[in-house]
C-alpha cells in the first residue's frame, strides 16, 4: 500500500514537471507581446522595454525557464499584467469558487449516476432504462456551454426560478470566510438565507457542468452492472439464498465500480476544463473566468497559473481514484 502510494507520488512529480514545461512553452510560442500589452496603447518603446526588463522577458529562454521553476518552488507564479496582482494571490481568491462548483458537480454526477446506472441495469430495456438512455445520449451530444445557455434562458430568464449568474445575490453578504466555500461557511454559521441563495446560484452552473459526466457515469455503470450481474459469482450468491438488494448492491456493484471509478477520474479532468466555459456563461467568479479574462487580455502569467492549478487538481483527483481503486479491488494490492 505504502509502496503503491510512493510510486504514484513519484509519477505525479514527473507529470508535474512535464506540465510546467508545457505551460512555459505555451506562453512562449503564443502570439502577442505581453509587455507592450501591459504598457498600454500610448506607451513609448522605452516604457515597453522597461516592463520587459521588469518581468524578465528580455532574458534568454533557459534563464527564463529556470527563474520560472525557481519562482514556482517559492510559490511565485508571477504577476498578472492585467490586474497587477500576484497570480498566486489571485488564484487563492478565485479557486474556492471553482472548487465548490466542481465538487458539487462531481457529487451530483456520482450520487445520481451510480443509482441511475444500477436501476437501468436492473430494469434493462424497461421504461426507466429508456429514460436513462435519453439522458446519457444527450449528455454526450449536447455541448456544455450550449446547455448552460439554454438553462440560463429557460430556468433563469423565462421562468425566473433561479438567478442568472454570479455566486451570490446582491441582497446577501458572503459568510465569514472559514473554508471560503459559501455553502459550507454559511452552514457552519447557521446563515440559512445565505445558504439558500448560494445554493440557488450554484444549481444551474453545477447542472450544466455535471451533465456530460453524469451521462457517461450512467452509461458505464449500467454496462458494468449488466456485465457483473451475469457473472458466475452472482449465481453463487443466488444459489446460497442471498436475495435481491444485498446481492445486487454489494456483490455486483463493487465489481462494477472499478471501471466506473476510472470514468469518474477521467470525467473530473474534463470538468475542470469545462469550468472555463461554464464559469464564463454563468459569470461564476472562479479560476475559469479568471483564465478567460486573462486570455482576452493576453495576460500569460495567470493562464500559466490556472493551467498548473488545474493540472495539479487533476493529478490529485486521480491519486484519490487510484487509492479508491486499491481499496475496492484486492487484486491491486501487493501480497502481504
Amino acid at each position: 500500500m505504502a509502496r503503491f502510494v510512493g510510486r504514484r507520488l513519484v509519477f505525479l512529480v514527473a507529470m508535474l514537471l512535464g506540465l510546467l514545461l508545457l505551460t512555459f512553452a505555451i506562453s512562449h510560442v503564443a502570439p502577442g507581446d505581453p509587455a507592450s500589452l501591459a504598457a498600454g496603447p500610448d506607451a513609448t518603446p522605452e516604457m515597453v522595454e522597461q516592463i520587459r526588463q521588469e518581468y524578465g522577458l528580455d532574458r534568454p529562454l533557459p534563464v527564463q525557464l529556470g527563474r520560472y521553476l525557481l519562482g514556482i518552488l517559492q510559490g511565485d507564479l508571477g504577476r498578472s499584467v492585467r490586474t497587477n496582482h500576484d497570480v498566486l494571490a489571485d488564484l487563492a481568491d478565485f479557486f474556492p469558487a471553482t472548487f465548490e462548483l466542481v465538487t458539487v458537480s462531481i457529487l451530483i454526477a456520482v450520487l445520481l449516476g451510480i443509482p441511475l446506472g444500477v436501476l437501468s441495469a436492473l430494469g434493462r430495456n424497461g421504461w426507466f432504462d429508456q429514460l436513462a438512455r435519453v439522458v446519457s445520449v444527450s449528455g454526450v451530444a449536447i455541448p456544455m456551454f450550449w446547455l448552460g445557455l439554454m438553462l440560463q434562458l429557460l430556468v433563469a430568464l423565462d421562468l425566473g426560478w433561479l438567478p442568472l449568474g454570479g455566486r451570490l445575490g446582491l441582497m446577501s453578504t458572503p459568510p465569514e470566510p472559514i473554508t471560503h466555500l459559501y455553502l459550507l461557511d454559511s452552514l457552519l454559521q447557521g446563515q440559512w438565507q445565505v445558504f439558500g441563495d448560494a445554493a440557488a446560484h450554484l444549481l444551474l452552473p453545477a447542472l450544466a457542468l455535471c451533465f456530460p459526466a453524469l451521462a457517461s457515469i450512467i452509461r458505464v455503470n449500467r454496462a458494468e452492472m449488466i456485465e457483473a450481474l451475469g457473472q458466475d459469482y452472482i449465481v453463487t450468491a443466488r444459489a446460497h439464498g442471498l436475495g435481491g438488494f444485498r446481492t445486487v448492491c454489494l456483490y455486483a456493484l463493487k465489481n462494477a465500480m472499478l471501471p466506473t471509478l476510472a470514468m469518474i477520474g477521467l470525467r473530473f479532468g474534463w470538468m475542470l476544463g469545462g469550468t472555463v466555459l461554464v464559469e464564463s456563461v454563468f459569470d461564476w467568479p472562479g479560476i475559469g473566468l479568471y483564465a478567460t479574462q486573462s486570455a482576452i487580455a493576453q495576460d500569460f502569467q495567470p493562464i500559466m497559473g490556472v493551467t498548473l492549478l488545474i493540472g495539479i487538481s487533476f493529478m490529485l483527483a486521480n491519486l484519490l481514484v487510484d487509492l479508491a481503486y486499491v481499496w475496492l479491488d484486492p487484486r491491486t494490492r501487493e501480497p502481504a
Partner: peptide
Amino acid sequence: GQRIALIPQDPMTYLNPV
C-alpha cells in the same frame, strides 16, 4: 443454500473477486 446447496464447477469464477 438452506435446503439445497450448490457446489459449482469452476472455483475461479464462482467466488466474488473483490
